[in-house]
Design a protein around this nucleic acid. Sequence first.
DNA 1: ACCTGAACACCGTTCAAGT
DNA 2: ACCTGAACACCGTTCAAGT
Lengths: 216, 216
Amino acid sequence: MPARQTPKPRASRRTPEARPYHHGDLRRVLIDAALQLAAEGGEVSVREAARRATVSPGAPFRHFPNRDALMAAVAEEAQRRFRAEIDLALAEAPTDPLARFRAFGLAYVRSAMRNPAHFEIISTGRYFVHSSSAELTRDNAELVALTERMLTEAAEQGLLRSADLKRIQIAGRALVYGFARMNLDGHFPRWGVEEGEIERMAEGVIDLFIAGIAKR
Amino acid sequence: MPARQTPKPRASRRTPEARPYHHGDLRRVLIDAALQLAAEGGEVSVREAARRATVSPGAPFRHFPNRDALMAAVAEEAQRRFRAEIDLALAEAPTDPLARFRAFGLAYVRSAMRNPAHFEIISTGRYFVHSSSAELTRDNAELVALTERMLTEAAEQGLLRSADLKRIQIAGRALVYGFARMNLDGHFPRWGVEEGEIERMAEGVIDLFIAGIAKR
DNA sequence: ACCTGAACACCGTTCAAGT
DNA sequence: ACCTGAACACCGTTCAAGT
């Protein structure tokens, strides 16, 4: 190979055609691409994310040790968005602890239904080890503590039939998680719940649950 | 290549070393291999199932048009086993409709916990299109009808607070499905429920739910 | 009729080489 | 310091050829 003497004129650095060799923030771009891939309903592949970021197949591995690490980063971003929606709903909720419990459950289900693919990445243990993300672990602990406080308050105000708060907490969790997953996993048609009915049904089952635990 | 004149003596057909060219029931063997792969916690791959059946990578496609079809067959088999467990539990249950509802829910959760990987294959929409299996569709419809009858009976006997049976049915379903999935998806540690506590908690949440819907 | 084995287009991941 | 591009071991799927 002859030594290059006259390098072929490169396009000016300012023209858009001149893709810079160094990406601005490839990590960020890969996470966004993966988030989009998931939202489009397909499998998230590292190679496809790389393609969308117009980098080579090996490039992502300079930013993530493996696919799981990318998925964990995706889950963290998705979790932040869900969390923001829930915090917003709680900010608008009344002060009555059972009303807040209701608002919390409804906001959870609605967020999950608004973006099922992102909900799945966060929820399922398949894509990465949840506990390996400090952010997800901390965020989850906050939500657990939040529901605990609501129930404790409700009990203190004599609003509950039972004193077994943990049981109520887990049952409530299972209810909303199960509802969100029935939606995600496509169970509702089989159970005679039509598309347009799901939203009202979410309210219905949460109200039923709260009526069941409330002293009357 | 010279024409073969003296074929090398083949082992007698009865010796186990003589793997027959035609498999006895490859379809069956592939399903069992896939069931085992899932139970071992790994991904189910057609190639690995073929390896376990000691056939070539292409052989499975003589029995299943694609991977999804194999997964559907696996789900059908897993569903039959779950169904058998549930029927057994119901046969031993008392005649009181709410007691039967409770027994049903508990049997469901227990079956799911006894074999999480098989439970997931049946439940998740990821592996194949559920409605494309007539057997799964029929079986599911039977379970839906079964819970419907229990609740109708309970209502007729004046055992329920609310007359909205569909809402109760969906809530109950979401509860047990959510509980089973929390287990499968590894949520219980984060929610402070320890391994040895899960079984009792399952009873606890179902009892809580039934107490909530029952007239008292 | 059923199975083999090579082939193809994918995937995750590694690594020398380039900028 | 970051990215390319070839390479490797996987995967699902197809198909001519064998039995």
